[in-house]
Structures are given as structure tokens and as C-alpha cells.
Design a protein around this nucleic acid. Structure first.
Length: 390
DNA sequence: TGTGCCGGGGC
DNA sequence: GCCCCGGCACA
């Protein structure tokens, strides 16, 4: 009778223990898992972090955020970069560091017949890069075919300065100057930091089996382009009703597009996206610029690119960052991870249906098992004693 | 491990 | 409703 009975659920909420699925190291497969989630969670409720300052352009969904600069700045704690690891764009393209590794990749993997497209992409990326002040100063080694983990310590070192929050860095926006690139919707990737956060060995660069495309997230659009710059141009012209040339942009622009991995790893990435990710495991222990009441989980969020004064910066509309923004303009979208994670903590405290055991002796104690006939009916029935009430 | 008793089932 | 018991939490 007693054999092999599954453990009782106990007082829990039915959710797996917090350390189980959502916290299991295996579940949190590190940066790779996170970065691969992003593109697959279609940001239906993409919340822009910054609203266009001048134009009528509004985000395709969700309310606009009033203070774009504040949002942007806040959206860029160093941790943000680590969180961006899951963004495919961070591995692709043009951003220094890990991203740079992608540029030669197409050439390496592409058969002669496909070189053209890849070359176009690479050229586009490089062209976009050429406009980035920071990238102009980036070491050429970053564009070497081999990854990219090494050439960027200095950039990593710049992070704290960029996020000390002491100023908005007017005119020289750190976000823009940071190894983000115009052609990738993701901020730079301090891989070392991410690896440190995740306690994992440095992952290899993005699998070159994936072809990255860019899909417009504006409503009823879904246009897919092969280059971020092209996507930005598309959004600027089609959705924002602006001139095609970014130079003519008079201020900030929001670009809502995401990256799509088209490759053999797409399927596995999609599966990995189902893996819940522990919020705290993803969040860095220190959030200098954020004093959120509760650190949001890190669901993959749509990629948001913003052009500020001609410089394109890519950020995530991550909830963690949104917490720094005006809550009135934000749509908190509790990640599904939290749905189970959050209640797990107080369940032990809140769920205590049983009243505390009284000190009074009960029939069992008073009369003993041998005189069960003397027990009250409740005690006989294994109910709360009615004779020796507490 | 013993105790109190909740929850549920059989009648 | 009465009676019983599995099973859990607590001391």
C-alpha cells in the first residue's frame, strides 16, 4: 500500500519547484538558448522603448514611450548586453565583437552560387558599420574571420563608463557609440560578461548554418529583408513616411523588426526557445541603474532599433529596462516564466491551510490507544478533537 | 516517530 | 450524517 507512491504535491501551487525546470542549469542553456529565443517570440505586443521624438511614427503596437532618451539610456545597463546574447543579430552582422565574426562567415560557408547574397549582406553590413563612429575606431581585428571574443576587451571596459548613469551623454550617446551597429538590432555583446553571468564556457560564435533575415514587425507588414539597413530603410520609408536616407532623419526613429534565422538550426532554436529561463539566472546580480521592485524575467523581446541623431542604436525593449521607463507608457508583459516562478516563492508562506496544532492534550493522549472508546467521536474519526478544544 | 486532523470515500 | 481511513504537517 505504501509502496511507490508518488510524493504528494504538498502545499505548493502545483508549479514545479523553483529550482526545478526554470532554474535547472540544463534548462538555462546559457546565452545560446536565450539568444535563440528572441526571434521566435513574435513581439505581438512589441513595446517600444523610445518613441519618435519628432515624427508621427508610432509603434505598431503598444503605447509610445515618452522619454526616448531615458528609456534608451536605461535600457543599456551592461547587463543588457549580456541579455542580448540571445539576439541573433548579436552574432550576425556587423557589430564588433561576436557580431564581427559573422561577416566572413557567409563567404566561408556559401557555395559560389550563393556568394552573391551573402556578399550583399556583408557589404551592407560593412557599409552600415562605416557610419558608426565607434566602429570606425574599432580594431580591425574585429573583422577577422575568427571570433571575436578576443578583440574587444576594450569595448567591454567601456561599458561601465557608458552606464554610470551620470549623464545622458548628450551628443555622444554611449548606446550609439557602443559596439552596436546600425545593421544589427542588437547591442554589443560582451560575451565574457555573459559567460561570466551564465557560468558557461565561452560559446562558439553563432552557428553559421543560419541565414539571418530581418522581418518587419509593423502591423500587417511582416516584410522580410536580408539586411538590417534595408529593413530600417523599409520602415523609415514605408512606415515612418520619411526619406530613405537616414541623414534626413531629424531625430529618433523606432524600428520594429526582428531577425529570423533561416537555417538548419532554426528548428532546434525554436525548441530551445521553449526552455524557460530563470529570470535571476539571466539577470546580473547588480543593476546599477535599475532599482526595480522586482527584476523582470528576461523573455526575448522584439528588437528595437533607434536612430538618434543619425546614429543607430539597437536595444531591446526588455522589461527589465522598461522598469526604468515611465510606467504609464509601458505595457508590462509578464513573461510566462514568471507565471510559475513568482508564486513559487510565497507559496510556502501563504499556503498554510492547517491551523496550528494546539497544545492541549487530545483524547488520544489522555486515554491512550487502549481506551479508544473513551475518545470523543471526532478523535475516533480522526477529526479535530471536540473534547479538548484548544 | 508519534500525534493531530484534513480531506475524502463508503454506507 | 455517520464512520472510517489515507496521508500530511508538525512536534
Amino acid at each position: 500500500m505504501e509502496a511507490a507512491r508518488p510524493p504528494a504535491p504538498g502545499l505548493g501551487c502545483g508549479c514545479p519547484p523553483p529550482h526545478a525546470a526554470s532554474w535547472a542549469p540544463a534548462a538555462v542553456s546559457g546565452p545560446s538558448a536565450q539568444r535563440d529565443e528572441a526571434p521566435r517570440l513574435r513581439p505581438e505586443g512589441a513595446v517600444p522603448i523610445a518613441a519618435p521624438r519628432t515624427g508621427p511614427a508610432l509603434p505598431p503596437q503598444g503605447p509610445a514611450v515618452g522619454d526616448g532618451f531615458a528609456g534608451l539610456e536605461l535600457a543599456l545597463p551592461p547587463e543588457a548586453r549580456a541579455l542580448d546574447l540571445w539576439v541573433p543579430g548579436s552574432w550576425v552582422g556587423v557589430a564588433p565583437g561576436p557580431q564581427s565574426a559573422h561577416i566572413p562567415v557567409p563567404v566561408q560557408r556559401s557555395p559560389p552560387g550563393r556568394v552573391r547574397l551573402d556578399e550583399v549582406m556583408a557589404a551592407t553590413a560593412l557599409t552600415s558599420l562605416s557610419t558608426s563612429p565607434l566602429l570606425l575606431g574599432a580594431p580591425a581585428a574585429a573583422f577577422s574571420s575568427e571570433p571575436s571574443l578576443e578583440p574587444w576587451p576594450e569595448n567591454l571596459g567601456q561599458l561601465p563608463d557608458s552606464y554610470d548613469g551620470s549623464s545622458n551623454h548628450s551628443g555622444d550617446w554611449d548606446l550609439a557609440s557602443y559596439p552596436a551597429s546600425p545593421s544589427t538590432p542588437s547591442p554589443p555583446l560582451p560575451l565574457e560578461a555573459a559567460h561570466f553571468l551564465f557560468g558557461e564556457p565561452t560559446p562558439r560564435k553563432r552557428k553559421n548554418s543560419a541565414q539571418v533575415m530581418f522581418q518587419c514587425l509593423w502591423k500587417s507588414c511582416g516584410k522580410v529583408l536580408s539586411s538590417a539597413s534595408g529593413m530600417q530603410r523599409h520602415i523609415r520609408v514605408v512606415h515612418l513616411g520619411r526619406q530613405a536616407e537616414p541623414e534626413q532623419s531629424d531625430g529618433e526613429e523606432d524600428f520594429y523588426y526582428t531577425e529570423l534565422d533561416i537555417g538548419v538550426d532554426a528548428l532546434s532554436d525554436g525548441l530551445s526557445s521553449l526552455t524557460p529561463v530563470s529570470p535571476t539566472a539571466s539577470l546580473p546580480p547588480v543593476f546599477p541603474r535599475l532599482d526595480l521592485p522586482e527584476p523582470s524575467a528576461l523573455p526575448p523581446t522584439p528588437i528595437l532599433s533607434q536612430v538618434v541623431s543619425g546614429q543607430v542604436c539597437h536595444i531591446h525593449s526588455d522589461h527589465a529596462y522598461q522598469g526604468c521607463l515611465d510606467p504609464m507608457h509601458l505595457e508590462p508583459q509578464p513573461p510566462t516564466v514568471r507565471a510559475c516562478f513568482t508564486p513559487a516563492l510565497p507559496s510556502k508562506l501563504a499556503a498554510n491551510p492547517r491551523k496550528p496544532r494546539g497544545d492541549a492534550k487530545k483524547c488520544r493522549k489522555v486515554y491512550g490507544m487502549d481506551h479508544r472508546e473513551l475518545w470523543c467521536m471526532a478523535c475516533r474519526w480522526k477529526k479535530a478533537c471536540q473534547r479538548f478544544l484548544d
